[in-house]
Design a binder for these strands. Structure first.
Lengths: 338, 338
DNA sequence: TTTTTGATAGAATACGTATTCTGAGCGAGA
DNA sequence: TCTCGCTCAGAATACGTATTCTATCAAAAA
């Protein structure tokens, strides 16, 4: 453990510890000769500041906290989170911050993690992902004035800084794309009713239909969950209709893949018999047959904005705006091709 | 910021700060009456220790560091890493540790991250993933006696603690499975020559052939990279042979999917015309058509062992053994079914 | 020459906790 | 009665850095 402290550097340079600190911090009020002496010693023996002492003294840890409340199992297989974590690491790193990641499985542990990261001052700020509307942490964080930023949406107050995908726009993008391809009878397979992301994409779907002057057909809209099985079931039901849709907007890639399987099983060609588009542009979209069109969510942008806003808050710069909406991007593949 | 310090708790309880500390640490040498007084005050006003001060004082941060050297982009789309990170978070959390994740993109930044995590004493120990044989960090870490554990393999010295998949066993598992299905002419599509994981799986393949008394056919073995394109190219080449293989072991799921695509394009039915098996049991295995058999890597076990060994090292308990080999598991799906 | 100003650097202190040191009080043994 | 030993709690200190406070010295102003 040959790690030197400022005190030892000082002794070797025949100056005081305070002077060493000043040299390191670039304080101009130090004589050039002494500065050189100190720098020479540091160069020779090496010096790395003790982050623990620095953070105790300066009240800054140089670490951001990321809390997701998902089970590690979900976390492990959700490409969204891995991409998000990776991107946040990247952008935080560029600004000289580290990232501390914690996962809150149960609601019970959520509180514990919150205590442990925040009140112990282990991190300078927090990024919360997909908060719930009934999130008891938000008011407390606001009250304490602790820097944090949300990825997702939170309705009860607009006092929080947040970044979210333009899910309405995404739904519209997918639907308009299908309309451009000539489709007139377009179904929507949604996820759980009441979830922002599903409702928003549904709104986008409705708007696109409306603007194109197409009729809305309630029998073409189904709600459920985010599973492949749900997509499979609903696609089958849609294909059983007297007048089945010629295209399907599925709220999630997995759901879309379920629909794809149903179509293939019944001998319905994709996209000729039925076009299918999903959301999120999950990595496996390009490996299914036919490759799946999808509306990509700009995870990196999401991460970049969240990180920058949080660091601005931490460093007492007033961020430009509270709510950020990140547009999505259409990725055309064979499943909606001509 | 209504966070109280021990000093303030002490004042409110009319005792000394030392006594508060003793009560909190469960020191038995404190009178029951005082203890109760202090606990009552804490209960009323709340108290959470300052992690920064604790770590400065106790030389322990309660944080593990995880360093992966991959670009954030690769990181984002590699399910292995997200699963690994998730699992480490989980197990570290169970032991009361946090996780600080950093990614070293360039070789240049690797050094910087190493400095920043380790010498600044920001973490108590380090988990290194997929070290290279020429890894300049290893000797230094060993020399400094800094606690660390490897996920992967390192040859130059056996002084390091490491956890690795049984890749030889995995290669054997896949090959034996195909042999059991009656295949006699089995190809191997590998990744980059010289990479441990590829060489080991190849060894397993060779051993399984040998033990089954099957001839080794060099023309059935191809090396390249981990891409889908490589699998596609090599599968085509194999199918062009005068006597094509009836089964393929692909070193990675992506490579296997490339092979799958080649087979489908040429009208070769899978598995009847050619069986295919991959490695890693990537989430999308179950969504391709036909679903892809794969040898699953026990990421959670890997993470669990690595975390436990590291924490043992940190807390001065001698771990049982230096090298841990985690067995893999066969996941049968339609691509190798009868 | 005396006072003031400015530049510089060392001494001292604070951050909050854990632990060692010290001393007070008391019962037991001589 | 006096000392020894023991229990317990407060005082003091250390962890390593950043910063404020203070002292020194020289040069400039009076």
């Amino acid at each position: 453990m040959p790690e030197l402290t400022q005190e030892q550097i000082a002794k070797l340079s025949r100056v005081s510890q305070a002077t060493v600190s000043r040299v390191l911090r670039g304080d101009p009020r130090v004589n050039e000769e002494l500065r050189q002496r100190v720098l020479a010693v540091i160069k020779k023996h090496g010096y790395v500041p003790d982050a623990r002492a620095q953070s105790l003294r300066s009240q800054r840890t140089g670490t951001l906290g990321l809390v997701v409340h998902r089970s590690p199992k979900q976390l492990a297989r959700d490409p969204f989170f891995s991409a998000l974590i990776a991107a946040i690491i990247e952008f935080a790193g560029e600004e000289g911050y580290h990232l501390c990641v914690d996962a809150a499985r149960a609601l019970q542990s959520r509180r514990a993690i919150y205590e442990d990261l925040l009140r112990t001052r282990r991190v300078d700020g927090l990024i919360l992902v997909e908060p719930q509307t009934q999130d008891e942490r938000m008011p407390r964080l606001l009250e304490e004035g602790f820097p944090f930023v949300l990825i997702g949406r939170y309705e009860p107050t607009d006092a929080v800084y947040s970044v979210d995908n333009d899910n309405v726009g995404a739904g519209r993008l997918a639907t308009e794309h299908l309309i451009r391809q000539g489709h007139r009878r377009i179904a929507y397979i949604g996820g759980p009713r009441g979830l922002f992301v599903c409702e928003d994409r549904y709104q986008g779907y409705r708007k696109a239909l409306e603007e194109a002057g197409l009729d809305y057909a309630p029998e073409l809209v189904g709600w459920g969950d985010f599973s492949e099985a749900h997509g499979y079931r609903w696609a089958n039901r849609l294909l059983d209709l007297p007048q089945p849709p010629t295209a399907v907007v599925a709220v999630d890639d997995l759901v879309a893949i379920g629909a794809l399987r149903a179509a293939k099983e019944r001998g319905v060609a994709v996209p000729q018999g039925m076009a299918i588009i999903g959301f999120n542009d999950t990595p496996f979209c390009q490996y299914v047959d036919p490759p799946l069109s999808s509306v990509a969510v700009e995870i990196r942008t999401l991460a970049q904005i969240a990180t920058r806003v949080l660091i601005d808050l931490i460093e007492d710069r007033q961020p430009a705006q509270r709510r950020h909406i990140v547009p999505c991007r259409l990725v055309e593949r064979a499943s909606t091709g001509r």
